[in-house]
């Protein structure tokens, strides 16, 4: 990959990576650090990565940098622990988008990550599996469980629609 292509990857994907990490980790400074680290790693390997694989490489690197960070700093359990589902978003005027964002923060990290990769980036189960080191079936299960959990968290659909 040329320097120009590397720079194109910064312009094209830095915002998207940042958004993905920020949604996962919910800490602006940490998210910025993770993106910075990701691109440093990417730059070191830029002559070994083709432009066509760059997006996937960046998301994989950012995801694993985030997981490393969470393990070290936040001491989080990253297995598919069940969310404590207590239906009911506390808002006087519940709004679906607000409720969803709130619910997203409540589900397990792995479910959150795979759903965001699916919705934000439109990745297939297989591609998400490559990024997160999961099998295609596991990805599918996490997405299903995640969406079910989100639905239960946001509560009564009649109030929201």
């Amino acid at each position: 990959m040329t320097v120009a292509e590397y720079n194109l990857c910064v312009k094209e994907f830095a915002d998207r990576l940042y958004h993905f990490i920020l949604k996962n980790i919910r800490d602006d400074e940490v998210a910025k650090d993770i993106i910075q680290d990701t691109y440093e790693k990417f730059w070191i390997r830029h002559d070994q990565v083709t432009f066509s694989k760059s997006r996937s490489y960046l998301f994989t690197a950012a995801y694993h940098t985030m997981i490393d960070y969470m393990r070290k700093k936040m001491n989080l359990t990253l297995v598919d622990e069940p969310a404590e589902i207590e239906s009911g978003f506390n808002s006087a005027e519940p709004d679906l988008k607000e409720s969803l964002n709130w619910a997203l923060s409540k589900i397990p990290q792995i479910q959150r990550s795979v759903i965001l990769l699916r919705d934000y980036e439109g990745y297939s189960y297989e591609e998400i599996g490559e990024i997160t080191n999961l099998s295609e079936s596991q990805v599918k299960v996490y997405i299903y469980r995640g969406r079910l959990a989100l639905r239960k968290l946001i509560g009564n659909p009649e109030v929201l629609i």
Partner: peptide
């Protein structure tokens, strides 16, 4: 409607 759309307003400021 349980879908998440990318918010294009969210931008990485240190690009």
């Amino acid at each position: 409607k349980i879908k998440f759309d990318r918010d294009n307003k969210v931008q990485f400021s240190n690009k």
